[in-house]
Design a binder for these strands. Structure first.
Length: 274
DNA sequence: ACATGCACCTGGATGC
DNA sequence: TGCATCCAGGTGCATG
């Protein structure tokens, strides 16, 4: 479900509410969501811990605790985190409750139950391979044009596959990859190393542009995604190609097409994207 | 080392 | 209404 702009929006809507709050009780309805350690240990170590800060890395959320432990959550496709006051209605797919010392609740809900939760000391975060090996994020100081162009020149996979690889760039997902390729007018099936310097430059700018816009609009809501307060995002109104199959391209008036690339539904304008 | 395909899950939309 | 099929903001693992 959520890509970097959605996870960042969730972080922003939760950070001030959970920082400084003590977790007084953890209820786990679906233990298999807890990947490390056991659900019982997870519950025991978290109880009576205070959240000091909430950090995002790629699509991961990291809740730092006052005992040097970190609660790590990856929402995968349909995970949701909500801050709830007592008496408000709970999500039908709620699986884990974190009860806080002010009576409020941080709630984890997940329709497809593919999300993952971990708890470990900060110095053991390397155990989470996807987190430890993540590449630079769009909009970060490390995501330079030099890094991007050099990395592309070494890859013989399709450009879409490369952009989705979290080891190479952290935080992009299916929506923002399709959008960035549309803005840069690049065919998603182009071999990464075949991009010219100018195309790499356009694409680098397009990636930063769509991610910044996604964050500014509070994320993209197609079905499941909501922020920490339960609100939908609005970036779906600004999409050029994603979810617009058979609609006219805003650039050329041609028809937006859909096909499978890198095992994912891919939306593009066959006329504009070469 | 690197690329691809499938498994992991459930539910909503669509078509017959 | 019922049933089958397809599709879904992601990633990890087996395989070649």
């Amino acid at each position: 479900m959520p890509e970097m702009p959605e996870v960042e929006t969730i972080r922003r809507t939760l950070a001030d509410k959970v920082a400084g709050r003590k977790i007084i009780r953890v209820d786990i309805g679906l233990p298999r969501l807890v990947k490390w350690p056991t659900a019982a240990e997870f519950q025991a170590v978290l109880t009576d811990r205070t959240i000091t800060k909430l950090v995002r890395r790629g699509k991961y959320l990291l809740f730092y605790l006052d005992n040097n432990y970190v609660l790590i959550i990856h929402l995968r496709m349909t995970g949701r985190l909500y801050y709830k006051t007592p008496g408000s209605e709970f999500d039908k797919f709620t699986h884990i409750l974190f009860k806080l010392d002010n009576g409020d609740i941080l709630l984890y809900a997940d329709t497809r139950t593919l999300g993952t939760l971990y708890l470990m000391p900060e110095e053991e975060l390397w155990r989470i391979a996807g987190l430890a090996s993540m590449g630079p994020e769009p909009l970060s100081a490390e995501f330079t044009l030099e890094y991007f162009a050099d990395m592309l020149s070494k890859r013989r996979a399709k450009i879409k596959t490369v952009l989705l690889n979290q080891k190479l760039i952290g935080g992009l997902g299916n929506i923002y990859v399709d959008e960035a390729l549309a803005i840069a007018c690049i065919d998603p099936e182009r071999i990464a190393s075949s991009l010219t310097a100018q195309e790499a430059n356009y694409l680098h700018q397009a990636i930063n542009q769509v991610i910044a816009a996604g964050i500014a609009h509070g994320g993209t809501t197609f079905r499941d995604y909501r922020d920490g307060a339960g609100q939908s995002g609005s970036h779906q109104r600004y999409l050029q190609v994603y979810g617009r199959t058979n609609e006219p391209c805003q650039r050329c008036g041609g028809i937006i097409a859909r096909k499978e690339v890198a095992g994912r539904g891919t939306h593009y304008c066959p006329n504009c994207q070469k």
